[in-house]
């Protein structure tokens, strides 16, 4: 599995795709948080925290992550190399996990350099260091968990089809539905009592709690559930593909 994982990582980082992903994430974040005059600007926010960053980043990842995961299984399906993988003495689950964790690694590598934002806010605080480390730390954990959910959703979408474009569109839609869509649906009193359940199903509902700086078991369990659920679904699809 390890060899497969490194193969996937390499395919991201020795080609331009991985760097484009990282670079675009960093530049987009920079523009939103440091350059333009908008509510996401950290310097103009008068608050020594990274809340705007954690509010916006899932939305950037929502677009970018489907672009890196769309290839993972769809491409193998199109070129037929998936058959080769199946013949290897390695279980389907391991193939899937290798691809999944390669995606997660790439996302973490993209997010890590934004630690510089944290240090900037640390020194810009009045007094220096007023920023809430605990809340920032949990928010980073939450962001990585949300990103991991997106990677799982993207991997699932990629397993559904052999067309990368279709995989991209499906995964972006699913990511949006799970991140924000359910929250929106639950906010208009369309379903009465059931609204709460719909909201509960959205990732942003749980991420909002984590952003406050509290780790509540049900939020963590929900986020991990989504990852497990989509990976299991992808596994089932892959098994069905086997001839």
């Amino acid at each position: 599995m390890r060899a497969l994982y490194f193969r996937e990582i390499k395919s991201f980082l020795s080609s331009i795709i991985g760097y484009i992903f990282i670079f675009i994430f960093l530049v987009a974040s920079w523009i939103f948080h440091w350059v333009i005059t908008y509510e996401t600007n950290l310097l103009q926010g008068n608050q020594a925290d990274l809340i705007p960053f954690f509010n916006l980043s899932p939305l950037i990842l929502l677009v970018l992550i489907p672009a890196i995961t769309m290839r993972s299984i769809a491409e193998e399906r199109r070129t037929g190399t998936i058959e080769l993988l199946f013949t290897r003495p390695i279980s389907d689950l391991k193939i899937l996990l290798a691809k999944y964790f390669a995606g997660v690694t790439l996302m973490v590598v993209a997010i890590l350099p934004t630690i510089v934002y944290y240090f900037s806010m640390y020194y810009l605080g009045d007094p220096v260091g007023i920023i809430d480390e605990g809340a920032t730390f949990t928010s980073y954990i939450g962001l990585i968990l949300v990103g991991s959910c997106f990677v799982a959703i993207g991997t699932f979408a990629s397993s559904l089809t052999s067309s990368q474009i279709v995989a991209f569109i499906i995964s972006m839609f699913l990511c949006w539905i799970f991140y924000d869509g359910f929250m929106l649906i639950g906010s208009y009193n369309l379903l009465g009592e059931f609204d709460f359940v719909v909201k509960y199903a959205s990732l942003s509902y749980h991420f909002d709690e984590i952003k406050k700086g509290i780790i509540v078991t049900n939020d963590i369990i929900y986020l991990i559930s989504i990852i497990v659920l989509f990976l299991t679904a992808s596994l089932a699809v892959i098994k069905t593909l086997k001839k």
Binding site: L26, W34, Y117, L124, D126, P127
Partner: peptide, 30 residues
Amino acid sequence: VDIYALDKYKVKNEGKFYKAINIIIPVLLV
């Protein structure tokens, strides 16, 4: 609830510096 205020003086005077390092350092790291 604590108020996590930004030092407005620093933002005004050193804002450009922070604007710059927050793209230069991440890109350099990558």
